[in-house]
Design a protein around this nucleic acid. Structure first.
Length: 837
RNA sequence: GCCGGAGUGGCGGAAUUGGUAGACGCAAGGGACUUAAAAUCCCUCGUUCCAAAAGAGCGUACCGGUUCGAGUCCGGUCUCCGGCACCA
């Protein structure tokens, strides 16, 4: 063993060893308990960053730990390899996207290997490989057969910089998720996946995701956005036409004073001829801050009151949600209220506050502003400046007056259904997933357009539709594929006449929606995956990745899993049993980014300190779910720690013959076990429990540091001492191995092992050995700490009290004051309660 | 506005079931070794009172409550972070 710790040599040596001996190869048996450990695969952008390092190190520790615990671990890695940056690089540097992508993959694979990550590289996949993306096409056709795919023209989110469409989930704050450009709206023909068909199940199963952070499940529920209400028909006055509205507040229907409809509502083009009005409607503001409307000239009839209500086109009514029309109740909806004030429309109060409703507060002293007509404050009957949106008691509502909102909702819904005026409905905010992308570097959508037969899917046996490699990408104009004649021109599979191919490619989120299934059997060619093997490994036991995919990738994957289950290939209902969303790596309080100039280069760090130091720092500086503040000095600290362990082992080898089987426990029945031995057992227990308890590696490593500190201070003066220290150091090696694997292997070998440490089981602790014989007892007087003393473990309460009352300092506090009560918490403290006077 | 989460030394963070607040590490200060420096090792390190020690007081964003006892539980307030937001 070398005198000095030399990470570079050590790490290269063991990486080669692991590879040569195929130690990370997945076992093909399906009898032992399995553990599927998965980290979100990266986009091959060129080089890995610290966020990747943290993500993959966390996963690697879990995989290594579970292997030592005897699980059959599947721990794969691959590449989310289709995507726009490859095309941008092609435009900028004149390379082919495929070449650029595969070169990046090669470089990044090397980087991951240098981190000592224990992947089974034989399971590696890249989504841009035809062997992979043909199954995207296959799933697309299967979904088409099941009615889960359709094509329609609609307003879509258009990113002018990426020159492509984005799904709703991919628009963040009106900006493109990838490049932050402001997203525009554009009318386009698109292919959609009917994720809404699974809205109810996706929502319901959120409750079963107990291994997920509550936050992520909440975000998904929020995104799906279920709301119950009724659809009601409002006849158009004087015409045989109806406007159907959706509302969740049917209890306020008697307070409706007008209707608001979306400016794209079909009734506008159908019934309105006045060019002036049409023009005004068309030029309504797009700004969501400003409420604007135009009176259409139409009137509708409230089916419950018979009142005539003016119909307004309003810019804040969304055509995509509900029916594109709403009944406006300004007294009880803030938006309608503001709109009514602006256009001088009537306000009618039909709900008043109910003192029986929890949260009711009597507010009799309200400021009165009599200048403009306002609805009445429901509790004071005085004018107010806001709509009253809470539940309450119905007034002025015909036969429903006097009911509470909750009951009124039910009764009015019943009445509407019975009278054939409408029906109860459920609406979701979730919309179908538009997957067409007007780009080259993605999966071709397997569709053919035939003048005779129309839209024809490519037959299964003609898959894959290969992405042509012979292209030029200019970045100007349309999709590069539309210029490739050999690709576009084909024959119709039905009638054999000349036909054209679809030139759009799929959203790359399709690729990542099922890759975790492919990993289970990445080399099968007749199916997307082997069901037997996949059913054995699925669901993923631990999934690890960034919170940014809380809705996007995680929702799409859940959807795909359910569809594939319904196709009959999979048993699992949900893909990811446990989810860990790791925090960001930040420096100087901000996310690392090139523009801020605060990036840390993993290659440089590995070169300088070695991968084990980088791994250890990432794990020690914060628990995995929290943000990690990068600290160069913290890295030094991790490096120092490894050096201290190295020195400890070196000294042992030199001074007292550290090695396998060194020393005998000369007195195994000794009534006072060696203190170092006890600390060793306590540390095994602590490290194991910290890993099992939400992967709190930071405290696990802290306790290892404590043990190392004690071992370093320990003086060997007998055979028993040597035995204890020997056992302690061997356990340090085992316990540190998931965190700093090369380092542990090197030490393991240095004490005489011929087999890799990877074949060793995780150590177990002996509860008796870990037990303290004496514990420190804290004595409190009236809850304040007044003394400490050592007592034997398990001393009975009466003796504990007796000893507490022998403590001189404690007696001084008590003096002659009467003792009211004495409380004993076993093994911890005594609290003596006395009267103050 | 609604829904999550957080607030503890100079810093990152511990405190697992209501029971010794500040483990472990970083930084800082002092010392040893050295011609010197680096590395390494040892000591100090929440704050106030006191020359110091001993000791005592205060202290987990703020106010209050429950309890023998609260960083932890309850009610309210403030601040910060994340998500959603004309979704009828």
């Amino acid at each position: 063993m070398q005198e000095r710790y030399n990470p570079k040599d050590t790490e290269e040596k063991w990486q080669k060893y692991w590879q040569d001996k195929e130690l990370f190869k997945t076992k093909e048996d399906t009898t032992s308990p399995k553990f599927y450990c998965l980290e979100m695969f990266p986009y091959p952008s060129g080089r890995i960053h610290m966020g990747h390092v943290r993500n993959y190190v966390i996963g690697d520790v879990i995989a290594r730990y579970k292997r030592m615990r005897g699980f059959n671990v599947l721990h794969p890695m691959g590449w989310d390899a289709f995507g726009l940056p490859a095309e941008n690089a092609a435009i900028k540097h004149g390379t082919h996207p495929a070449k650029w992508t595969y070169e990046n993959i090669d470089y990044m694979r090397g980087q991951l290997k240098k981190l000592g990550l224990s992947y089974d590289w034989q399971k590696e996949i890249a989504t841009c490989n035809p062997e992979y993306y043909r199954w995207n096409q296959w799933f697309f056709i299967k979904m088409l057969e099941r009615g889960l795919v359709y094509r329609k023209s609609s307003l879509v989110n258009w990113c002018p910089s990426c020159e492509t469409v984005l799904a709703n989930e991919q628009v963040i704050d009106s900006k493109c998720w990838r490049c932050d450009s402001i997203v525009a709206q554009k009318e386009l023909e698109q292919w959609f996946l009917k994720i809404t068909a699974y809205a109810e199940e996706l929502l319901r199963f959120c409750d079963t995701l107990t291994g997920w952070p509550e936050k992520v499940a909440a975000m998904q529920r929020n995104w799906i956005g279920r709301s119950e209400g009724v659809e009601i028909d409002f006849p158009v006055a004087g015409l045989d036409k109806k406007i159907r509205v959706f509302t969740t507040r049917q209890d306020t229907i008697f307070g409706a004073t007008f209707l608001s409809i979306a400016k794209q509502h079909p009734i506008i083009s159908e019934l309105i001829n006045d060019k002036d009005i049409l023009k005004k409607i068309a030029s309504l503001s797009e700004d969501p801050e400003k409420k604007e409307g135009v009176f259409t000239g139409l009137c509708a009839v409230n089916p419950l009151t018979g009142d005539k209500l003016p119909v307004w086109a309003a810019n804040f009514v969304l055509m995509q949600y509900g029916t594109g029309a709403v009944m406006a109740v300004p007294a009880h909806d803030q938006r309608d209220y503001e709109f009514a004030i602006k256009y001088n429309l009537p306000v009618k109060v039909v709900i008043i506050q109910d003192s029986r409703i929890p949260g009711f507060q009597d507010s009799s002293e309200k400021t009165i502003n009599p200048s403009t007509p306002r609805p009445l404050d429901p509790s004071t009957s005085l004018p107010t400046t806001q709509a009253y949106e809470d539940d309450g008691i119905l007034v002025d509502s015909g036969g429903f007056s006097g009911l509470q909102s909750k009951e009124a909702k039910d009764r009015i819904a019943q009445f509407i259904e019975k009278s054939n005026l409408g029906k109860r409905t459920v609406n979701y905010k979730l919309r179908d997933w538009g997957i067409s992308r007007q780009r080259y570097w993605g999966t071709p959508i397997p569709i053919i357009y035939c003048d005779t037969c129309g839209i024809v899917p490519v037959p299964e046996d003609k898959l894959p539709v290969l992405l042509p490699m012979d292209i030029t990408i200019t970045g100007k104009g349309t999709n590069p594929l539309s210029g490739v004649r050999d690709f576009i021109n084909t024959t119709c599979p039905k009638c054999n006449k000349p036909a054209k191919r679809e030139t759009d490619t799929m959203d790359t989120f399709v690729d990542s929606s099922w890759y975790f299934l492919r990993y289970c059997s990445p080399h099968v060619n007749d199916m997307p995956f082997n069901s037997g093997r996949t059913n054995y490994y699925m669901p993923v036991d631990q999934y690890i990745g960034g919170i940014e995919h809380a809705v996007l990738h995680l929702l799409y994957s859940r959807f795909f899993t359910k569809v594939i289950r319904d196709i009959g290939l999979l048993k699992a209902d949900e893909p990811f049993k446990n989810l860990l969303t790791q925090g960001m790596v930040i420096k100087e309080g901000a996310k690392m980014s090139k523009s801020k100039g605060n990036v840390v280069d993993p290659d440089y760090l590995i070169e300088k300190y070695g991968a084990d130091t980088v791994r250890l720092f990432c794990l020690f500086a914060a628990p995995p779910e929290r943000d990690l503040e990068w600290s160069d000095q913290g890295v030094e600290g991790a490096y120092r720690f490894l050096n201290r362990v190295w020195t400890l082992v070196n000294k042992g080898l030199r001074d007292w013959g550290l090695g396998i089987g060194k020393g005998q426990n000369t007195n195994p029945q000794s009534p006072t076990p060696n203190l170092l031995l006890r600390k060793t057992h306590q540390t095994i227990k602590k490290v194991t429990n910290d890993i099992e308890r939400d992967y709190h590696f930071n405290t696990a490593i802290a306790s290892l540091m404590e043990l190392v500190n004690e071992a370093a201070a320990f003086k060997v003066s007998s055979d028993e001492d040597a035995y204890a220290l020997n056992l302690c150091i061997i356990n340090i090696m085992l316990l540190i191995s998931p965190f700093a694997p090369h380092f542990a292997e090197e030490l393991w070998e240095s004490i005489g092992h011929e087999q890799s440490l990877l074949t060793a089981p995780w150590p177990e602790w002996d509860e008796d050995m870990a037990q303290e014989e004496e514990v420190e007892l804290v004595i409190q007087v009236n809850g304040k700490l007044r003394g400490r003393l050592m007592i034997p473990q398990g001393l009975d309460d009466d003796s504990v009290k007796e000893r507490a009352f022998q403590d001189a300092k404690v007696l001084e506090y008590i003096k002659d004051k009467p003792v009211k009560k004495v409380l004993v918490v076993k093994g911890r403290l005594v609290n003596i309660v006395i009267s103050e006077k």
